[in-house]
Nucleic acid binder design. Structure first.
Length: 140
RNA sequence: CCAGUCGGCCGGGCAGCCGCGCUCCACCAAUGUCGAAAGACGGUGGGGUGAGGAAAGUCCGGGCUCCACGGAAACACGGUGCCGGAUAACGUCCGGCGGGGGCGACCCUAGGGAAAGUGCCACAGAAAGCAGACCGCCCCGCAUCUCCACUGCUUCUUUGGAAGCGGUCGGCCGCGGCGGGGUAAGGGUGAAAGGGUGGGGUAAGAGCCCACCGCGCGUCUGGCAACAGAAGCGGCACGGUAAACCCCACUGGGAGCAAGACCGAAUAGGGAUGACACGAUUUCCGCGAAAGCGGAGGUCAAGCCUGUUUCCGGGCUCGUCAUCCGGGUGGGUUGCGCGAGGCGAUGUGUAAACAUCGUCCCAGAUGAAUGGCUGCCACGUUCCGAUGCUCGCAUCGGGGCCAUACAGAACCCGGCUUACAGGCCGACUGGCGAC
């Protein structure tokens, strides 16, 4: 668990090129307006870190700045809560970051951070066992 | 009111919630955390401040920084190119001149030299650079043909003649033909054809002659100058192209804040000392019978750098191993914002601009702060309704949409160029209407 003394979580920042290259080896999750790369560093006491990648082919300097700022604002306001300690996140922006509404962008980002992958946890039981109780329903 | 020209300015505003960079203040908190070191850094609250007219393209000019930088001559390469001024400087700006366009306000203009030389002038056309003669125009000559004159024969006949075939040591007035010459006015080709228009002149023509315009030459006048004007002389020579080579004049070291300075891990590369090894040629000295060895000096070494060449010069590198010691990448600090600074006033100047005074302090990031979201308003656009009338415009009311274009400082200035939704202001020009 996170320390409850400060409810707003401090998120570190990835800065150097080797850090970015390391995260590329982790889990890759596709979103509508972005691409999310996640790497577990196995250091549960460190705060999570985030980096942004906006390539030059997606717009001029003004548009690239706007994309990065909207993503930063989304992470700071809501998505940082969902991030786990000891993990690195890299958000690769696409051009749709400019056009989607801020609420939708935030929701998509939180969803991608929370869900490890499209197919959920690797379960052994298989699709039988209709799960009578409240097992792990994410609609809770 | 419509159409247009030029110049200047703005380039959303207000409020709320949550944040960011830099900086200052107060309190709290370890003598702490990270790091090899250099160095950097916490929490809470508050104050200040925080992108552009182009921050863009990186096309010119500077500041600043390092490197190179010795001297002379020639050469090469690049840039600029009417004149005067402004400026730190400029290829920028201002004022003027010449040329071109527009009714006009005004706009455009790479605008030195073509009698220093070389080259090129496609296609078309007769001819494109010591000009040329296709058609045409004009003159002279000739008589094979043709034409004309005279005449013989044949055929036809409306009895006037007509047609055909011949003849003449016939003719050159007219149309052709052949030959010789003149011409550049006209046609035609072209971007360009060796001045233009009019008159005289002539066989026809032509600066052949004359007037005006143009051109050239020197003189005078005005102007700092580019240049303009005047009278005179010259019958006209000297085509265009220099964003073709070229010539002339002026001018120019190179690289850039990833510059540079400082602190400083590892690894690879440097300096000092010692040992071993180490060219050629020549001069002198010593030893030696000689070969040769040792010492001192010169030249070449033999390359690279100083833009090239030459001359006089300079610098660097000029072998291996061992020991010791300093420089430098990643990282950090700095460079880093008081400046050719902004605003206002006054003065000088036609202006660009300059001077003086007052006042202000105005971004400093480095995976890169200056933001995210919401509401209202202004502006714009569109729809509906009403009213007015010049019948597609104005005003009023309501609703919807968008809520902005071009675009993000990266050492700093002066310019240029390019991009830009919408809007404001001023001056001027040409029309129409009213008074």
């Amino acid at each position: 668990m996170t320390t409850e003394t400060n409810d707003k979580k401090t998120v570190g920042r990835l800065k150097s090129r080797p850090q970015f290259l390391a995260v590329r080896k982790g889990d890759i999750r596709r979103g509508r307006a972005f691409l999310l790369e996640v790497l577990d560093r196995h250091e549960p006491n460190d705060p999570p870190r985030v980096g942004f990648t906006v390539t030059k082919k997606h717009g001029n300097a003004v548009e690239r700045n706007r994309m990065r700022r909207r993503l930063k604002a989304a992470v700071r306001q809501s998505a940082a809560i969902a991030m786990k300690n000891g993990h690195d996140y890299v958000i690769v922006a696409r051009r749709d970051v400019l056009s989607t509404s801020f609420a939708e962008l935030t929701a998509r980002l939180v969803e991608r951070i929370e869900s490890p992958s499209r197919h959920g946890t690797p379960r052994q039981g298989g699709p039988k066992r209709p799960v009578p109780g409240k097992h792990d329903g994410k609609e809770s």
